[in-house]
Computed example of a mutant assay.
Amino acid sequence: MRIERWWPYLDGSAKNWLRQNLRQEGLPPKVQDRIAEAGGPVMDPILAEPDWAFIELDAETVE
């Protein structure tokens, strides 16, 4: 599923973790759970390069 569809529903603390840990391998279980709760992917790889690029751009315009 495309990140644009579930990102708006992602918990703020998970968004912050992802923004602060760009492209880090191995997401913490809590962040993985929040992604799943928002409707995001649950199978590895949870985030692909286009997803990280989206998060990086979003970090420049933090909510």
Rank of each mutant, 00 (worst) to 15 (best):
I3E: 01
R5K: 11
E63G: 13
L10Q: 06
N16G: 09
W7F: 02
E49I: 13
I55P: 04
W52K: 02
D33N: 13
P45S: 11
I3W: 04
L18S: 12
G40H: 09
P41I: 00
N16Q: 14
M1E: 14
D44P: 14
A14F: 01
L22F: 13
G39L: 12
E4V: 07
S13G: 10
W17Q: 12
F54T: 02
P41R: 15
L18I: 02
E37P: 11
Q32N: 07
L47S: 01
Q20E: 11
Q32C: 09
L27Q: 05
V62Q: 13
K15R: 12
N16D: 13
R2K: 11
Y9A: 09
Y9D: 09
E60A: 13
E4W: 10
D33G: 11
S13W: 11
P50V: 01
G12A: 10
W6Q: 01
D44Q: 12
N16Y: 10
R5L: 15
L47R: 08
R23A: 06
A38N: 04
W52H: 00
I46N: 14
P29T: 02
D44I: 08
D11S: 08
V31P: 11
P41W: 00
E37Q: 14
A48N: 15
P45F: 05
N16V: 09
R19N: 03
W52I: 05
L57K: 15
P45A: 06
A38V: 05
N16I: 10
W7G: 03
D51L: 06
M1N: 15
A36H: 14
L18F: 00
G26N: 07
V62A: 14
W17G: 11
M1H: 07
I3L: 04
I35R: 13
L22Y: 12
L10M: 01
G12W: 02
L10C: 05
D44G: 10
A38F: 07
A59D: 03
I35K: 12
L10F: 00
L22P: 01
P45I: 06
R5D: 00
D51H: 09
D58C: 10
A14D: 01
W17T: 09
R5T: 03
L10V: 01
V42C: 11
V42D: 15
P28C: 03
